[in-house]
Design a protein around this nucleic acid. Sequence first.
DNA 1: AGAGATACCTGGGAGC
DNA 2: TGCTCCCAGGTATCTC
Length: 274
Amino acid sequence: MPELPEVETVASALNLSMSGHCFTRIETFIDVIRYPLELKDRPELLNSIILKVRRRGRYIIIELENLNAIIIHLGMSGSIRIVEASEPRKKHEHVLFHLDDGMTMRFDCPRRFGFIKTCRLAAPDAEPNMLQELGVEPLSDDFSAKFLKKQLENKTGKIKNAIMDNRIVVGVGNIYAAESLYMSGIRPDRAAGTLSLAECRKLVDAVKIILRKAIEAGGTTVSDYRQVDGSEGKFVRQLKVYGKDGEQCPECGKIISKSVIGGRSSFFCTKCQK
DNA sequence: AGAGATACCTGGGAGC
DNA sequence: TGCTCCCAGGTATCTC
């Protein structure tokens, strides 16, 4: 399932293969994914050079020279492939973006949790309006212990929900939240406001370490996620607690617990995490 | 206002 | 084997 490392992997691969090219035709095979697709009769999206493909949070931004942008979210099961136009369309490839070099960028989304939107950019490299509410990038210096402590002040909600809240910090999903909290020794159900500055530092460091490792491994393939070349992400082998309920904690041997927090399964060690 | 619950969707796995 | 049921996930929207 695509979290930040997966989206990073996909966006940089798309940037490499599509920059300098342009879309010549967009074919849609469905009208609504999560939201209605707004890609029909949009000549402004065609024949304008693709300046770059970048990532913000879990959003992929395809920036065109004419300052139009296509924003793609992979949802939980979305993937993007670049293949020759002649290749037969797969069942869930809902949108085909034809490129001027005979290739197609294909948006595959079996569970239809993903979406594609378009917008105008105020300037090259500008933040799209719809993404301005997003929090800081976890791998940037903006995501610091001091920053996190400030954000968590007086919060009574659970810390796991807080670090998955993309208005605070983007790109930390259920898997990496579980792993980061385990690494930093903090229970996912702790009230966010009770974390000390030292604990915030441990958590911030853990998030950065986990995300960097996951990017190196090409993401985490639990079920659907694939890299642009179709291969699996290898971070799944490094998971310590996610999906490991009933197994022993790799540190202390205690059985890993599972509970539902914020409507999502959460995994933690009651001995190592306080 | 802040926090929690829920809808959205479908493939895959578990259980019978 | 084949059926049904439940679960996974991020985001928007609703309710309390």
